[in-house]
Design a protein around this nucleic acid. Sequence first.
RNA 1: UCCUCCUUAGCUCAGCCGGUUAGAGCACAUGACUGUUAAUCAUGGGGUCCAAGGUUCAAGUCCUUGAGGGGGAGCCA
Length: 475
Amino acid sequence: MTHRKVAELLAAAPTSQTVTVKGWVRTFRSNRFIALNDGSTIHNVQVVVDFEQTPEAVLKRVTTGACLAVTGKLVASVGSGQAVEIQAESVAILGDSDPEKFPLQPKKHSLEFLREKAHLRPRTNTFGAILRVRHALSFAIHQYFNDRGFYNLHTPIITASDAEGAGQMFRVTTLDPVNPPRTEAGAVDYREDFFGRSTNLTVSGQLEGELGALALGLIYTFGPTFRAENSNTPRHLAEFWMIEPEMAFYDIHDNMDLAEDFVKTVIRYALDRCADDLAFLHKRLEEEEKTKPQAERALPLLEKLQFVVDNAFERLTYTEAIDILLKSKPHKEKKFQFPVEWGIDLQSEHERYLVEKHFKKPVILTGYPKDIKAFYMKQNPDGKTVAAMDVLFPGIGEIIGGSQREDDYDKLRTRMAEMHVPEDGLWWYLETRQFGTCPHAGFGLGFERLVQFVTGMGNIRDVIPFPRTPKNAEF
RNA sequence: UCCUCCUUAGCUCAGCCGGUUAGAGCACAUGACUGUUAAUCAUGGGGUCCAAGGUUCAAGUCCUUGAGGGGGAGCCA
């Protein structure tokens, strides 16, 4: 490679060395100043062209969105907006961009408009920043687990198991949808299907993750997950990425310790490595907040992230949380839409009250009633609750859900029967409780929710390159 | 899926109680200017007013239905 990255050039000393840079035009001012960006940083490098020495035919083709290769001297900038700039000696057009048709203008676009231009929106400052932060968080996650002796386990994406009941599933089939083979009773005959049975896209790698933990000790998965729910919210996707660590010999407290340290560590990594991008997102958000009344304004992004990194998460039991809610002002004044009593599944408004009003910091709730939680969670001695934990964050609600797993074979089978979970599809899961079972725990974290929190983006569709939501799979 | 708001130029929006040729800023084109920072100034082109149906002498404006989008809720990560 003979050309240099913009990020590299902006950090270099301007000693009039000749450099080549390649990138896309953001703006072209005064027929003289090109702001060029190559994605290596949020900042552009300024290319100064001598319009008397440069062929007019070339200058005409320097339009917003065009791709250029520029060679010139890296010098100290005369202007005040930047430290260095390139005095162009040659400008080559690698790719034209018809300015009448290129949809991105050098101005602020709405996020809704950019969602319709998902193929081009990475070329904007905002999405460039988001995608770089997304990468940094992804890398930090792998590094976190690798540093602590976890193995990355690749759990299947196509699965026959649907027992967890984590949501509606997408069917995977090679059968002819118009004329599928039928059984004698008239049902679709999945014995004729590719796998010889009915299969779906995974909703969670957890059950397979447990198999890994009971052999390798510490594992984590980081892969795509699919939910065919008709959810239309700024916090849900049909295709999203989930991180699911699973740890042998961990109890629920070890699990909480890990979850808290994990989230703080990856956020700290982003603060360190993505300072420029986060500063941009911080400023962007601040301007947006200015349009809101004072009372509704949230903590500025960088302060919010620093606060999470610096402070211990509040830990309390579900029962204690219900007590707080029962004594709360909105409950007494009947402001909650959903009534509060022991045994309910906490609603968004309840979680938000605890996190944003009462504690004003991330909260970890444990000891949920067994009837509102999954079959595989470890039953507590009280007979009423399970060793579940949810980490609740301001703004986005539940970011992590986890539990210590039920490791007692008989208790697990009894619970499955009570909750009408069929055993036949899960014989392999049950065998782990027959052959060398042990206490173990784990949690799941929605990657996009983490990216949402760190970037401050309000809509989850803006933190993944190509969002999959109901009625939307254009790109 | 439910509640609610929205859909007018390439983008962001205004358009009053239904009334005669539907506007602005930005973008784009042409020209001027040339150390700019979303450059500036002048001029210009650009409209299936989301779709279908209805009410009316007259509909961008009112009504019905549908589509798409935002926000809230449910489900959840």
